[in-house]
Write a protein that binds this DNA or RNA. Structure first.
Length: 204
DNA sequence: GCGACAG
DNA sequence: ATCTTGTCGC
């Protein structure tokens, strides 16, 4: 019992062994009313692309702030399922815990896939914050209703910060550290950046 | 009533 | 998310 509890605490802090990570992103095509989801597999901590997969689905569910999961989770999970190797961690494009009901896209995808996940959003959904420092690596807490729901992270100087939050099976501090460790001079961490490129190119 | 609002 | 020209900066 004691061992089991300890194991849960450790796993909730940070995945014990990360060998591969995956980036998930989707793009919607209003003309065809369909969305393309991309999953890229990268080695860790090198972040070298090893595999990629694409999934396509017609989407009828509209975009409603707070309900993004119902629109994007299906394609992302479909793309993820196509990867031949199972990643140890997911970088999901969107909020995780930093959500009105504390359960954004990264939470849904991570839980349903049974894989630790980090929410990496390019803009804010909820919460207030003070602008983080100008240097890369600077961060400040994101508060919503007296609670820290995420972190606003400057991944690159001269660009807008990213909104990092817990998705599944990982602590916020670890999530922020992993996001910064996955950056290679660009605003977006490699997993997210490569998944974005792939889903964008596949839409054509 | 008004403004905010991941992708 | 998408549409869309030029433009500022490294």
């Amino acid at each position: 019992m004691q061992e089991r509890l300890r194991a849960r605490v450790v796993r909730a802090g940070r995945p014990e062994r990360i060998l591969r990570v995956a980036g998930l992103d989707a793009h919607y095509d209003p003309k065809l009313r369909r969305s393309v989801g991309a999953a890229v597999l990268l080695s860790w901590p090198e972040c070298v692309l090893e595999e990629s997969a694409l999934a396509c689905r017609s989407t009828d569910f509209p975009y409603v702030p707070g309900l993004l999961s119902f629109r994007e989770a299906p394609v992302l999970l479909a793309a993820l399922a196509l990867l031949r190797t199972r990643p140890d961690l997911l970088f999901v494009d969107g909020q995780g815990y930093a959500h009105p009901r504390r359960f954004g896209l990264a939470c849904h995808v991570g839980l349903l896939a049974g894989i630790p996940a980090i929410g990496v959003a390019k803009s804010r959904l909820v919460g207030e914050f003070r602008e983080p420092g100008a240097a890369a690596g600077a961060q400040s807490p994101l508060y919503d209703r007296e609670e820290v729901v995420g972190a606003v992270v400057r991944t690159r100087a001269g660009t807008r910060p990213l909104f990092v939050s817990v998705g599944h099976g990982i602590a916020l501090e670890a999530a922020v550290a992993l996001v910064l460790a996955a950056c290679r001079g660009y605003r977006l961490p490699e997993p997210t950046r490569l998944a974005d490129h792939l889903s964008r190119a596949a839409r054509r």
